[in-house]
Design a protein around this nucleic acid. Structure first.
Lengths: 163, 163
DNA sequence: ATGGCTGCAAAGTGTTTGCAGCGAT
DNA sequence: ATCGCTGCAAACACTTTGCAGCCAT
């Protein structure tokens, strides 16, 4: 059973939601899915499909990139993963927060992503939409800048280059 | 000379900026560029490269899609056009507003794009960035919803389907 | 006549899909 | 024994690039 995973503490709800989704849709629990989800949760930050694939292969698992994409899409269908596109072309994926929407601060130097919520901004967005006669459904707010802490920023950048 | 265009009133500054850029970079003023810019300015809303190409061909001009892309990239290098990506995959282009940044309201039904500025939101963004120790450089805010005026929304949708 | 520009086709991205065989139920 | 799942390669959609000839300067 997928329920007997040993990794990714704190994400029991995620595994349970996945189990439920698979069961309801008569889908199967495979080794590949288990591994992909495990790695995804352990990284637990905004990863793209190829990065995830690379890390999984790096530990000796022979899983195809297509399967990574298929699994991420399945997790999105299950509503427990969300897709974002910060820099053009590449999508990154994150665990969906069950308690609502958040926006992102992205460091353009080191790639650090910080999630934040700000009710004040959201309220002003609703006002703007109303002003222009639009029924606001969703929004996307990304703030781009650079880390004030240059030391840790540089470290992250180097770590990324080294792979 | 490109200066002697008869179309796109109100965009003299755009043509002048383009002339200046071409001159400074020892680039040439060609028929194709003239036509592409003319169509782009006349559409004067958020178009993607293929849509622009389609409209230009529809009026009998034999210009390649690659040239459309190359010209749009040139206009971006010149700083008078900006690229946006609302719905994934496709980039849309708009005339850069010389007087600063603006954000977008997008109708997910008819594709209508409304530009707006809101200093209050921008100020709160700066506060958020500071709070998380990020030097804010730029941001991207897109509000997605549907038109309250369903009639004109439907009209735009139908017009789009008819081509 | 020089050297940038064009159209075409080919190559490049990131992502999806068809298929034959594999594996979970 | 089903029937979903996987890896692979091919297909996709959007964009860029190499090339031989064209055209603005």
């Amino acid at each position: 059973m997928m329920k007997n995973h040993k990794e990714t503490p704190g994400f029991a709800w995620f595994w349970e939601a996945l189990d439920l989704y698979l069961e309801r849709h008569k889908l199967k629990q495979t080794q590949q899915r288990k591994i992909i989800v495990d790695f995804f949760l352990r990284i637990n930050s905004h990863v793209d499909a190829e990065e995830l694939h690379r890390r999984i292969r790096a530990e000796g698992h022979d899983i195809g990139l297509a399967t990574i994409y298929r699994t991420l899409n399945l997790l999105m269908d299950a509503g427990i993963v969300e897709e974002r596109s910060f820099q053009d072309g590449r999508s990154v994926f994150e665990v969906a927060s069950p308690d609502g929407h958040h926006d992102h601060l992205v460091c353009t130097e080191c790639g650090l992503v910080i999630e934040f919520e700000n009710e004040g901004i959201e309220e002003m967005q609703r006002a703007v939409a109303k002003q222009y006669s639009i029924n606001l459904k969703t929004h996307r707010l990304d703030l781009f800048g650079t880390c004030m802490d240059e030391k840790s920023c540089l470290e992250r950048r180097e770590k990324k280059i080294r792979g």
